[in-house]
Amino acid sequence: MTEGNFVDYTKVNLESGRGGKGSTHLHREKYIEKGGPDGGDGGRGGHIILRGNKNLWTLYHFKYKRHFKAAQGGNGAKQRRTGEDGEDIYIDLPLGTVVRDTETGKIVHEVLEDGDEFIICEGGLGGRGNWHFKSSTRQTPRYAQPGTEGQAVDVTFELKVLADVGLVGFPNAGKSTLLSVLTAAKPKIANYEFTTLKPNLGIVEYRDFQTFVIADIPGIIEGAAEGKGIGHRFLRHIERNSTLLFLIPADSDDISAEYEILLNELRKYNPEMLDKERFVAISKADMLDEELMEQMREELDNQGAFNGAPYMFISSISQYNMQQLKDRLWQMLNEE
């Protein structure tokens, strides 16, 4: 999937169908001149229905179509025949999509299950035919109800990537390289900041044909919680990850301070993010020898650098500790 095809935010206009009109027909038959009212009811207008689809990973299919209007219900007919219901419109959404009312910002629905259906706009009711209104004093009513209007709403679709592990780190920390080594994903990799502008998903193949999903997300910067840089567009994608993998390069000026900045941005955005399991990977360990690595390990332990979160030195280039990293992540994802 190319970056240009990854759409994670879009606004759409939805309108359900109007109900059909009731019929004012009066029964006529040979030798029966005044058979009374027999007008049928109008059909229901078409619904707009949201549906979860596990085969979708992006909102790209809304890039060129953002207005959806369901069909009107059919009008009633003679012999009390009810008009046809308007055809419903199904809108497929990837799992992890949040649906908000554009005007109020209120969450209307969250798509979490494949096949999950939610009627977001109900079709208008069909009008009742004239036979409903006959009585002993009004035997030939010549009126019927019109159908009611459908509903119209402007909504915003926000995709929050569904993955088991979310990669958290500053730009150019090596997240894309790590993803390319752990999985078959082929993210854009270069030695400059903000190479990754859209989330990349990869499936990690583990022992005995088991797998888990890891997401490389645009690098966080100080102030992201206030919307600086990519800001909220990044942060919302790690809300659904059960485990956060912090990636900090070994050549960082201050590993402990960098971790605290990342943690603080998550805390400001949503304090509940700190309740997730956390693991720290110190990348680019191929630049270190054993003596320097042991010295750094002692300093980090003495500082209590990661507030008790476990850590490990790794190298995507030399494959150092790659299998051990998989083992640890799998253990965190599956422990009770």
Rank of each mutant, 00 (worst) to 15 (best):
P187E: 03
P141R: 00
G86N: 05
R44D: 14
K188N: 10
P141F: 03
D289E: 00
R240G: 05
V98D: 04
D208P: 15
M273V: 00
A173T: 05
E15F: 12
I282D: 10
V204H: 08
H61Y: 08
F306G: 07
A257I: 04
S23G: 08
L182W: 09
D289L: 01
I49D: 09
G96P: 07
E336G: 15
A250I: 05
G20A: 04
L292W: 01
S256K: 13
V7A: 02
R100F: 11
D101A: 10
E15P: 04
Y311K: 02
Q324N: 10
A152E: 14
L325N: 03
S283Q: 02
G227A: 04
V111F: 02
V7I: 12
T82F: 01
Y206P: 13
R44C: 05
L167H: 00
E103A: 13
G4V: 05
A185K: 01
G169D: 08
I282T: 14
A305Q: 13
E15Q: 14
I261N: 06
G74N: 07
A77E: 02
E239R: 12
G35M: 09
I107F: 04
G123T: 10
L266W: 12
K175G: 04
R66Q: 12
F212Y: 15
G223D: 11
R297E: 02
V108L: 15
D41F: 04
R18W: 09
V155I: 11
G174W: 05
F6R: 11
V12P: 07
R142I: 12
V168Y: 01
S315F: 14
A185T: 08
S252G: 08
K106G: 12
F118L: 08
E290C: 06
T82R: 08
R278Q: 15
R80L: 06
I120R: 01
G36C: 02
G308M: 14
Q319W: 09
L112R: 11
G169R: 00
G105S: 10
T2S: 03
F157C: 02
Y60C: 02
I255V: 13
H25Q: 05
A152L: 08
D41Y: 09
K160L: 10
E272K: 13
N191W: 12
E222P: 07
N264G: 06
N241W: 00
E298H: 07
F313G: 06
P141D: 01
A71K: 14
L262W: 07
R51S: 15
Y9N: 13
D164Y: 01
S283F: 03
Y259P: 07
N172L: 05
G231N: 06
A71N: 06
E277H: 15
V98G: 00
F68A: 09
W57M: 13
A77Y: 02
D327I: 06
E158L: 09
G308F: 14
R142Y: 00
T24H: 08
K30Y: 15
G219T: 09
L95W: 00
G304A: 08
F246Q: 10
T177N: 12
A71L: 12
D289T: 00
N191L: 05
Q319V: 09
F157S: 09
D88A: 04
K69Y: 10
E149M: 04
G231S: 08
S180A: 14
G169E: 01
D114R: 02
N200Y: 14
R142C: 09
T104K: 13
I230R: 04
A285T: 07
Y31R: 11
T102G: 12
E291C: 02
E122M: 05
E299T: 03
M273L: 13
